[in-house]
Simulated scan of single mutants.
Amino acid sequence: MYVLEILWIVLFRFAPLPRIWAVCLIAINLGALFFLDTTYGLVALLAALTGIAVMMVIYSRLGFVRLLGIGHVFWIPMLIWFAASLPDRQTDPALYWWVVVLIGFNTVSLVIDAADVVRYLRGERAPHYRWRAT
């Protein structure tokens, strides 16, 4: 249920530019489903699902707060490993480009998430989106 609430907020309550960013980020990470026969796809899916679980706990207790970005912390070891062991570009170009794009988008997202978590820790704790419009 909380997953659908967060998805609804992202898709229908965000301003246009952050909404486009979020849709691209979701789509790129869902690309893991096309590569489940590889370690890259499995690791990306596991990192995403683990992060979603953490975000659901935070959301259920605090609402849509800036702390939600901490769920992406599982991307850090994944991105380091992916960057250090890129798949062979010649052998599997689709996998290679997906990993490169994933590294780029998720790294930018981590920077945004870190800024949000810092803002939360400095006192910006009020939920900035609600499930239903008030």
Score class of each variant (00 low, 15 high):
residue 91 T to Q: 14
residue 106 N to P: 04
residue 61 R to V: 07
residue 68 L to F: 01
residue 47 A to P: 11
residue 105 F to L: 15
residue 40 Y to D: 14
residue 95 L to A: 09
residue 27 A to L: 11
residue 100 V to I: 14
residue 97 W to Y: 15
residue 59 Y to N: 07
residue 69 G to S: 09
residue 79 L to G: 08
residue 61 R to C: 06
residue 29 N to V: 13
residue 27 A to C: 09
residue 82 F to D: 04
residue 61 R to L: 09
residue 93 P to V: 10
residue 31 G to V: 13
residue 42 L to Q: 15
residue 30 L to S: 13
residue 58 I to F: 09
residue 85 S to K: 09
residue 33 L to R: 09
residue 69 G to E: 08
residue 101 V to Y: 03
residue 96 Y to S: 06
residue 62 L to P: 00
residue 69 G to K: 07
residue 36 L to A: 05
residue 64 F to A: 03
residue 60 S to V: 00
residue 102 L to G: 05
residue 46 L to H: 00
residue 61 R to W: 01
residue 55 M to L: 02
residue 73 V to R: 00
residue 106 N to D: 13
residue 66 R to Q: 01
residue 68 L to H: 03
residue 63 G to I: 02
residue 35 F to Y: 12
residue 101 V to E: 01
residue 74 F to Q: 00
residue 72 H to P: 00
residue 89 R to F: 14
residue 58 I to G: 08
residue 42 L to V: 14
residue 56 M to I: 03
residue 34 F to V: 10
residue 80 I to A: 15
residue 97 W to R: 10
residue 103 I to K: 05
residue 73 V to M: 00
residue 58 I to R: 09
residue 92 D to L: 08
residue 103 I to E: 08
residue 77 P to Y: 03
residue 62 L to I: 02
residue 38 T to L: 10
residue 26 I to H: 06
residue 78 M to H: 05
residue 53 A to P: 03
residue 79 L to E: 11
residue 65 V to H: 05
residue 85 S to G: 09
residue 78 M to C: 04
residue 80 I to N: 07
